[in-house]
């Protein structure tokens, strides 16, 4: 039996990111999103983009208000020697983003995937089976922990290089198509 996400661990994780723990009614969901936000932030460090803009790294958040807020708190932080920019206003053109996060409730995820197909844009979602269905990185819950699912075929096509350290702890899945 896995221990559920401990507050202690989260506190550390969020403390390091400068996020304060705010008690809410939907504590579990809130906690989960915080973990996801932290994961998303860390994820960037294990990915190499071709032709990354020299000054900034943009994460676009779709379909999740809480994730947008949580990520917003992280904007302007330094990551990969660049300033982190968060775009949470559902930009119609995702091609300016290096990372696209698609919330579970986002219905347009398929069209977003089509728009980003072949571009060096890391697509991340907590949608069930996201990686299996043409996404790159999916978050899934496993015994109270949030884990990663990666589709290396898609990342490879998009010319993104994922760190072996990341692949080591993630579950890799084959692409649904092909």
């Amino acid at each position: 039996m896995h221990k559920p996400l401990t507050h202690g661990f989260l506190a550390v994780l969020l403390l390091s990111l400068g996020i304060c723990l705010i008690p809410t009614v939907h504590a579990d969901e809130e906690l989960e999103d915080k973990v996801k936000a932290a994961y998303l932030f860390h994820l960037v460090k294990f990915v190499d983009w071709p032709g990354l803009p020299p000054d900034e790294l943009r994460i676009c958040v779709y379909g999740s208000k809480s994730m947008a807020d949580l990520m917003g708190e992280l904007s302007n932080r330094k990551v990969k020697e660049r300033t982190l920019k968060i775009d949470a206003n559902d930009p119609s053109d995702p091609s300016r983003c290096q990372v696209v996060f698609i919330g579970r409730t986002e219905k347009r995820w398929h069209s977003l995937l089509e728009k980003t197909a072949g571009l060096p844009i890391l697509t991340v979602s907590d949608h069930d089976g996201f990686a299996r269905r043409g996404g790159m990185v999916g978050f899934y819950a496993d015994g109270g922990k949030i884990r990663l699912e990666i589709n290396p075929g898609v990342t490879h096509k998009a010319n993104l290089r994922l760190s072996s350290k990341l692949l080591e702890l993630a579950r890799t899945v084959p692409a649904a198509k092909e």
Binding site: L5, F9, V35, A38, H42, K165, L166, E168, L169
Partner: peptide, 14 residues
């Protein structure tokens, strides 16, 4: 160096 991802994603298996 090898433990960064494990710590970042709270996965102590690796």
């Amino acid at each position: 160096d090898r433990s960064t991802a494990a710590l970042a994603f709270n996965d102590n298996k690796v």
